[in-house]
Design a binder for these strands. Sequence first.
DNA 1: CCGTACGTTCGGTATATCCTGAATATCCAG
DNA 2: CTGGATATTCAGGATATACCGAACGTACGG
Lengths: 170, 170
Amino acid sequence: MDRMTAIFVDGVGAGAGPSGLVSQLQGRIFGLLYLNPAPMSLDDIAAQLQQSKSNISTTIRGLVEWHLVRRVDVPGSRKDHYEAATDFWRVMQEIFERRFRWMVRQVMATVDETRNVARSEGKRPKSEAAFVDARLDHMNQFFTTLDAGISAFANGQPVTPESFQQKAAR
Amino acid sequence: MDRMTAIFVDGVGAGAGPSGLVSQLQGRIFGLLYLNPAPMSLDDIAAQLQQSKSNISTTIRGLVEWHLVRRVDVPGSRKDHYEAATDFWRVMQEIFERRFRWMVRQVMATVDETRNVARSEGKRPKSEAAFVDARLDHMNQFFTTLDAGISAFANGQPVTPESFQQKAAR
DNA sequence: CCGTACGTTCGGTATATCCTGAATATCCAG
DNA sequence: CTGGATATTCAGGATATACCGAACGTACGG
């Protein structure tokens, strides 16, 4: 691997790691594939990045799932070959749609569940119960709006911050 | 801590952890504060979540930095007290502005650096050099557009996915 | 100027995560 | 079927992260 590639691979890895979206190694793999004109096999990648093939195999699976990397067929070779995806937009949609949305749904489900338990646990001062109710409503409203915003964004519709602010304000 | 609060705290923690934005414990702390009508001291929080005070102290700092939790003054007490923020919108802006943007900048800097090195390392086949050039351009263009989109979003302007798609297409 | 009630820092330890090499599973050519 | 080439799985070791309790620093009340 020449110096240029090394710098790119390291830089992308350094950016990817702290982002929380993909791991540093995943960033490095993507960087390597992105600068390589031809698809690469697992052995190629492992050699270039000085990692075991098993580690590359497991790590690259995540990249394929996020549609950051594609598995392509190379005629005449029995090895799996991979190339970097270039439609970053699609990748962003994927991330918003799956990871972000999962958290949103998780929180909304929690709010529901909490409401139910709050109702069955009637032994609470009235003022406190009202406070909790208001808080749960507030959170539910914000995340509902956020959920709709993510849908809109994923479908190519514009997202305006104002709609969030107003609907989420209390 | 009653059952209702426990469910809420656990649920929010479970949603926060995998999101990659804040840790599970940070989610739990926030959940606890969010349902509590009065600000809580470090000892209160530590007792409720069954964690050491030192751990709460260090962990809550991140929450304050992301503006998810505020330190408030409670007259008559020398302890620090904390309460949950409710302007989630502001928090989202903060996260986009700081964490996401940091990655964007990191990648753009890497592309620049890589271009420089590529220029000084002239000993490359012409076709390959052209390929790398095109790839770097492509990435730079996408991230530049993304950077602008984040700015727009943070300033309250609408963000349309189409603008990304078209500008980022090649 | 003490003493006390805090928050924070720090060294060590437990826990989770990453990574590897060997073992296993899978596929295909002959 | 068999053999070889390949990907994947797995158990263990290495490395990083989370967490705790004690020591330290700090500010306030007396």
